[in-house]
Write a protein that binds this DNA or RNA. Structure first.
Lengths: 218, 218, 218, 218
DNA sequence: ACGCCCGGGACGCCCCGTTGGT
DNA sequence: ACCAACGGGGCGTCCCGGGCGT
């Protein structure tokens, strides 16, 4: 009636719910998150929520698929896309995470994984999909490095990507618990040291260490 | 008098409650864990629980301090105590974790840390204490290795220990979510590769320190 | 559509809850009153109660403010409003209370006052407000009587009102405990005798004031 | 062994329990009173309590019969025993109650009566017995006054005693709720004014008012 | 289609009064 | 005299659908 206020805007309502839901789930976890708190934060009512989402779980699924996935892409995968040297780009990404003090609430994906993957298959599948996409991004970068002669050709890029993701998530978890980014710096140093072992030696590849690289720890 | 049944045994009752509490908390998380389920699993009643623990949080604290701490010592710290080569012992410990199929429910410490450390200060303090003990155990083993000439003397053992714990916890988390121990094997390989960079070059000790080790990633 | 049953009627629901709450509180007292019993008696569920009242105390406060206040007005204040002679009206009101067999459960206001005023400030304030209104009603009636020459002008109407309320409440309490309205009749007699000392001597007004009235008992 | 400490003393234990029980019941009421709080305050254990009293109600009964009855005798009946003029003695007793600022927790007997008499027959009987003893003490004093020519012979001493007890209890209740002894002073004034109507006129008895006294308010 | 108010059940934790074995 | 254990609710509150307006 009197201007653009108070008009129906389903998309905006949905987005506000997703945003408020993400924040509350990030803060408290999925199960303790209260729908009342979420709808209050979104400025809508319960009816609106249940119009857009079948139930609490459906909201949580959408948060994973839309919000968390977006953050993952933005923070970890896009920085690698146009990188000249994948190892340098990986180190830079970890360093960026270490300086951004998000150590308060931890990684949303990790939080949800620890909380829900053993309880709810739907969450587990969605989270697994994101983790695989994350690892695939790292693996592709390393593979590109192999084609460009920057990464040793005998490296199992999939396993390396998994290890990197694990180390990052572990460090984020430690930092969250400690309320201190120190683990992130330790991780940065460790990851750098680890990645240094993946670098191709300029010119040629040291033949002595080719066999050891794969059998190490085996 | 007439058999060992129904006799008073407070210690056993307490232990049963701790054990059942640990299992339920490990399976569901602390907040969703139901005291009714726990007392049922322990075969006692609410009154017994209320007698031994002031409230749910007190039970959770005791689970961390007594059960989880015990598992940590047993699985990660005791194997390192009498080790000749700390790096080999660390690799062996990770390998042991990779074969034990605990990938269903994840690391209890990690689960609790992700769920509770941002919510409850008591949990945060207790979990932090355990993590510090864990890292201290790793750091001491590496330091011993330095004294024995098996680890490069220029290594920041504290940061290395933090990185190792982070990588292990991250890999356990990934494995839990994937319902597959593959991340643990990737972690094993990654940790082994990382640890290989910490080994002292056989023969002498000092010359390996070329300054890069500490500045890497800085 | 198909009959008046099962239609949504928030006001009616709220009123049913207030009514059932008042009855249960009157019967058992506030603290022993069970919300489950109240919602059963009201024919609604916990959800409805939680929708209308934040918690048990909020329900109790509303019972005082709305139900008990209404009874007080109806039984003790309205009968005085249009009275020609306030003393006669007061005696009539006490007599009405003596014949109505409410000696089973006592005065709701008195019950709540004894139970809650020392425990809960919210109750204490609300109950105090009702008592002050009660006393104010009596005092105003006596003051009107003074203006009309029916009550001696040297009477401290506020103190007289307090004494009357105290005597009535005390007698209701005794009757409740004795399960017998006899104390109410004794109170009726006593109040009448007391009020007779407040009557202005017919014919003139001033000379009755001989100074004893105010100093008596002092 | 080593002195009089820690020796068994059943009577003292019982007395401590009665005392702590009375205080807790006076403060909170019987039903909200916690046995744990009582045994803590008494410095004994649950076992000791259940050794001396069959259950919570038995403790409450004993508190009424022994502690509350003692207070009643001491504060309201003994002061009347040797009084020359019962009316003066009654006024003095009320004045004594008005100056003692016990308006915090109210009269224990009144509290228990309001809370328990409708719920529990055992309490009701015991409390009724105390009230009757109280009224009997007042009535006897007035009767003595009649024999001594200080109280008008046409006074129904039983009804007068009931009215006095009711007014006192009512005033104590108001004072408790208001957290202010003002109602006690109003009661003092009212009681004095009321009692003045009971005084025998020196020398003879006004014949005109003999008939009115009993029919007043009837 | 979209949003809102109202109501429905279901547990969860807390804690209490009480009783057997020592 | 007592420690340990027992069940039974109490309140809170949460997630979730229907009945109506817009």
């Amino acid at each position: 009636m009197q201007g653009p206020k108070r008009q129906r805007d389903p998309d905006r309502t949905r987005e506000r719910l997703l945003d408020a839901g993400f924040r509350e789930i990030h803060r408290q976890g999925f199960q303790p998150a209260s729908l009342d708190t979420i709808v209050d934060a979104a400025g809508v009512t319960k009816g609106a929520l249940y119009h857009h989402f079948a139930n609490k779980r459906a909201l949580g699924y959408a948060v994973v698929d839309e919000v968390v996935a977006g953050l993952l892409l933005q923070r970890w995968l896009e920085p690698l896309e146009g990188a000249a040297d994948p190892i340098d780009a990986l180190i830079a990404a970890v360093r960026a995470a270490a300086v951004a003090d998000q150590c308060e609430l931890g990684c949303p994906l990790n939080n949800l994984a620890q909380e829900m993957s053993a309880t709810d298959k739907g969450f587990q599948r969605r989270i697994d999909r994101l983790y695989r996409r994350w690892e695939a991004g790292f693996a592709e970068a390393l593979e590109r490095g192999q084609r460009d002669g920057k990464v040793r050709p005998d490296v199992d890029v999939a396993a390396a990507a998994t290890f990197l993701v694990a180390s990052i998530e572990g460090a984020l978890g430690l930092a969250k618990n400690r309320k201190d980014p120190q683990p992130l710096h330790a991780c940065l140093e460790g990851v750098a040291r680890y990645l240094s072992t993946l670098r191709a030696t300029t010119g040629d590849v040291a033949p002595a260490s080719r066999g050891r690289a794969r059998s190490v720890g085996g």
